[in-house]
Amino acid sequence: MYYVRTFLLITNLIFLSTAFILLCIIIVKTIKFSNNERRIRSMVYDLQFNLTNEKVNDFANIISTMDIPNRPVNWKTIRAGYHLIELDVNIDNEVKSKLKVILLSKGVYIY
């Protein structure tokens, strides 16, 4: 009888600790993705003003290291930033093609 109680107690503790760990992981991922969404919006917003090759390189480097949340609003925002860069005549074609390769490798469909 004692062994059964001990076994049940241990299994309940394992279940609760696993559930707690999973809940913590979900919370951390949610916070991380919401920060990335804000970061994407602010980067694209900053691209509207005084667009330079350095800004485009910074945008490309940040996008290449970032986990992009799988939501349509994020893809559309990044695509809008790409179109801003693509239409600017002051940006070098080499920088534009580098950004295009990075976006395509991240799964952003450019049309």
Rank of each mutant, 00 (worst) to 15 (best):
P69A: 03
L47K: 05
N35P: 09
G81M: 01
I63R: 04
L104H: 12
N61A: 09
I91A: 08
S97D: 14
R71S: 09
R38Y: 14
L84A: 11
Q48L: 14
R38E: 14
R79M: 02
D92G: 06
S105L: 06
V73W: 07
I40W: 05
K96C: 01
T52C: 07
D46S: 13
N74L: 00
N57V: 11
N61W: 04
D58C: 09
P72F: 04
I40D: 00
K98W: 05
R41G: 10
V95M: 00
N36Y: 09
I62Y: 08
R39P: 00
R41L: 13
L51F: 04
S97M: 12
N35S: 13
I63C: 06
T65A: 10
V44T: 01
D46E: 15
Y45K: 08
I62F: 07
S97E: 15
S105M: 08
Q48I: 14
E37C: 13
I102N: 06
A80I: 03
V73Q: 06
S34V: 08
D58I: 11
Y45I: 00
H83Y: 12
G81L: 04
F59Y: 08
S64Y: 10
S34E: 15
N53L: 06
P72K: 10
P72R: 07
S105Y: 05
E37Y: 14
R41D: 08
R41W: 10
F59E: 02
D88C: 11
A60C: 12
L103P: 02
R71L: 09
V73A: 03
Y82F: 13
K32H: 13
F33C: 07
S34C: 08
N57H: 09
K100M: 12
N50S: 15
N53Y: 06
D46G: 11
L103D: 02
E94P: 09
H83N: 11
Y45V: 07
I63T: 04
T65G: 10
K100L: 11
N93W: 13
K76N: 11
R79T: 03
K96L: 07
N57P: 02
K100R: 15
V44C: 01
L87R: 13
K55T: 05
T65H: 10
R71P: 06
E37M: 14
R41P: 08
L47R: 06
A80Y: 06
S34F: 10
Q48N: 15
A80D: 01
L103Q: 03
S34A: 14
L51T: 05
L51A: 03
V73Y: 01
S105D: 10
L84E: 13
R41H: 14
L87I: 02
V101A: 12
D88Y: 08
N36Q: 14
